[in-house]
């Protein structure tokens, strides 16, 4: 029984097409990544899934039935823009939000305390929300989403602004929920996070679905044509004819090999070439990252008129890859 099923959904705001012919399903016990740059239609899609807006055509089913508002009691939604009542005490706030989701006051109280303990913020319980740090507020919001034990958990950029320790804490909590059979939908433009977490993904760009499927299948359908190399010394091996394009950093390069039937051998000979001139501390042959796949897909999908060089800036992507190792 799929938890979410979108069938050819379309949504137009005035003149702007927000979502066009979008279909995907989310199964219980899986993590689903809804990916795309800002403004690609992620939030519009989510809003239709939880009945804030209604699709112009197509259908949305939750829990194997056409959407009705009553189902919202089984859905937890963490919006991208965090929203809490600043002046309210944390516990009052959680109890209020829990009650709105149909819990009794005492249930909500009990579960709030349980979750605050689990996420290590018991000291915040009696404080006013505005007195908390941003990361703590985010945890409160996270708890508010899960208080009523939803079967479908929708998280829009859940880790933005969290330090790695807290982000891991939340990721572990989400992994537990998946193990319990809940479906988790992740919406993000941080492809690197999704790569580690998600079972299935849907890539959308300008409202169109450009790629979907299971993470492993998608990855394995791409040739292992990427080489990551850490080196010291002469970099003349980067002129090797097997290289199609590369990104250079200091002491590190990301290489895309030319398409060829003997890709694995090409990589080996590239390594041999590099060893002759430089000292190699790390050499890795791998599939393209999700980010690479995404850029490639978007380029394919773009009409010729819009063609030309597609930069990261155009896709409105954070350039965090520049900072990695």
């Amino acid at each position: 029984m799929p938890i979410v099923q979108l069938n050819h959904v379309r949504k137009v705001y005035d003149t702007k097409v927000a979502v066009e012919d979008l279909s995907f399903t989310i199964e219980p016990g899986t993590m689903f990544g809804l990916l795309g740059p800002n403004g690609s239609g992620k939030t519009s899609t989510i809003r239709m899934m939880i009945g804030i807006t209604v699709p112009d055509s197509g259908s949305v089913s939750l829990f194997d039935k056409p959407f009705v508002r009553k189902m919202l009691a089984r859905v937890g939604y963490l919006p991208e823009e965090r929203g809490l009542y600043k002046k309210m005490k944390v516990l009052d706030q959680l109890v209020f939000l829990g009650q709105l989701h149909g819990l009794t006051a005492s249930e909500a109280n009990q579960r709030s305390r349980f979750w605050c303990e689990k996420l290590e913020i018991t000291e915040a319980i009696s404080k006013k929300t505005e007195d908390l740090s941003k990361g703590m507020q985010q945890k409160i919001q996270f708890i508010a989403t899960l208080l009523h034990d939803p079967e479908l958990i929708i998280m829009d950029e859940p880790f933005s602004g969290l330090d790695p320790i807290n982000a891991n804490l939340l990721m572990d909590a989400l992994a537990d929920l998946r193990r319990e059979g809940k479906a988790v939908l992740f919406s993000t433009h941080r492809m690197d996070q999704v790569e580690k977490l998600c079972d299935n993904i849907a890539l959308i760009h300008r409202g169109h679905l450009i790629l979907s499927g299971s993470m492993t299948e998608i990855k394995s359908s791409y040739p292992r044509n990427r080489v990551h190399i850490h080196f010291e010394g002469d970099d003349s091996f980067l002129q090797d004819p097997s290289i199609e394009s590369l990104k250079r950093y200091s002491g590190y390069a990301e290489i895309k090999l030319r398409p060829s039937p003997t890709l694995a051998d090409d990589a080996q000979s590239l390594l041999a070439h590099a060893i002759r001139v430089a000292r190699i501390s790390r050499f890795e042959v791998t599939e393209p990252t999700l980010e690479d796949i995404f850029i490639e897909k978007v380029r394919e999908a773009l009409p010729i008129a819009n063609g030309g060089e597609l930069s990261m800036a155009q896709l409105d992507q954070p350039k965090e890859s520049d900072l990695d190792d």
Binding site: R69, L72, A73, Y77, P79, G83, Y85, L97, Q141, A144
Partner: peptide
Amino acid sequence: TSRIFEVMLATVR
């Protein structure tokens, strides 16, 4: 401005 609507509208009309 505090975006509470986003949270609230997920349960309330």
